[in-house]
Computed example of a mutant assay.
Amino acid sequence: MARTRARKGGRTLSLDDIVQTALRIADGEGLDELTIRRIAAELGVGAMTLYGYVRSKEEILDAMADHVLGGIRIPEADTADPAAVLRAAATGFLAMMREHPSIVQLMTSRVTGSIHSMEGGMEGVIARFLEAGLSPGLAVRCYSFLITYALGFAGYQRPRPWGRLDDPESAELRRQRKHFYASLPAEKFPSVVAIADDLVDLPADSQFDFGVDCFIATVVAELRRSPNRPDADRRP
């Protein structure tokens, strides 16, 4: 992404400029609003100028996924504590998807095999799992669960902002959602009406943490049962 070229006004244009602009549009407005013409307009150049760097919109999408996955930040965790390592991975995955909401759509619509994305988004995470004592098979199962769980949760929570307690409007949004559940016809929704106060937490961060905690408890129990068993990766 280091290639640059002079553009109007004496400034330079680089592939990184294109990717960052594409991410800003896609994260804020969705992939449907992302076009070569729109990116060019944001950068102050003609659409044909972008074709000096990329051959198509598909190539830009691949570069976006490459940039986000390759730059994932997983919090540090004591590798002597498998639970801490798994929780750090879950936290890092969700943070990445919140910072760049478009990655949820990108990851569920295309496959990237770039060295950069695989080094950051796969190798770095799996290496920590193995260092924490997980067998190869268990490391793969944990990686699979955590990244797909984070994808699903991030996609579910995004259009339901009352789940984000750090949102300044969350209190009012939660109040409105509780009222919605509580005001449903009781004869048709007796259970929903009865637990309206709790249902508002469906997209809450606490629900994500609950799922991660349940998963980690299962993994830790498996490690305690057979930490050094030769056939630990096999399923009955």
Rank of each mutant, 00 (worst) to 15 (best):
E99I: 04
M107E: 06
R160Y: 09
Y53F: 15
A90P: 02
Y181M: 08
G211F: 04
D213T: 13
G44P: 04
L106G: 00
G211Q: 07
A139Y: 00
A204C: 11
A182E: 07
M96F: 02
D166S: 15
L23H: 01
L94S: 01
Y53I: 03
E76S: 13
H116W: 10
S170H: 12
R24Y: 11
A83L: 06
L31G: 04
Q157K: 06
L173P: 07
A89H: 11
P75D: 11
G137E: 11
L50D: 00
K8H: 14
Y149F: 14
F208A: 05
Y51D: 10
T49H: 03
V54S: 03
Q105S: 14
A84N: 13
R7I: 15
R164V: 04
A127C: 12
D62K: 03
Q207H: 10
G71I: 02
R55I: 02
D209P: 02
A186W: 10
V104D: 00
L199F: 08
A89P: 01
M118I: 03
A40G: 06
Y51V: 11
T112C: 14
R98Y: 07
L23C: 06
L134W: 00
L15M: 15
D27L: 12
E119K: 10
I72H: 03
R174W: 08
T218Y: 08
A2R: 14
E42K: 07
W162R: 05
R141Y: 02
G70P: 01
E58G: 15
I195E: 15
A83W: 02
Y181G: 06
M96N: 06
A26H: 01
D231L: 12
D66C: 12
L146C: 09
A41Q: 13
A196Q: 06
K178P: 00
G152L: 00
A88S: 14
I72E: 00
R73W: 02
G120F: 03
G9H: 09
V192F: 06
T112H: 05
R225Y: 08
R3L: 15
V45Q: 11
D32A: 13
H100L: 13
I147E: 00
F153Y: 12
V200C: 03
S170W: 05
A77I: 06
F129W: 05
G28C: 12
D233T: 11
A47M: 11
P136L: 06
E172G: 14
M48H: 08
S109I: 02
R225Q: 14
F210H: 15
F189R: 01
V68G: 02
E222W: 04
K178D: 04
M97I: 09
A80P: 03
A221P: 04
I60M: 12
P82G: 07
A194N: 11
A90V: 04
G28D: 10
F153T: 00
A182F: 10
Y181K: 13
F210K: 12
E33Y: 12
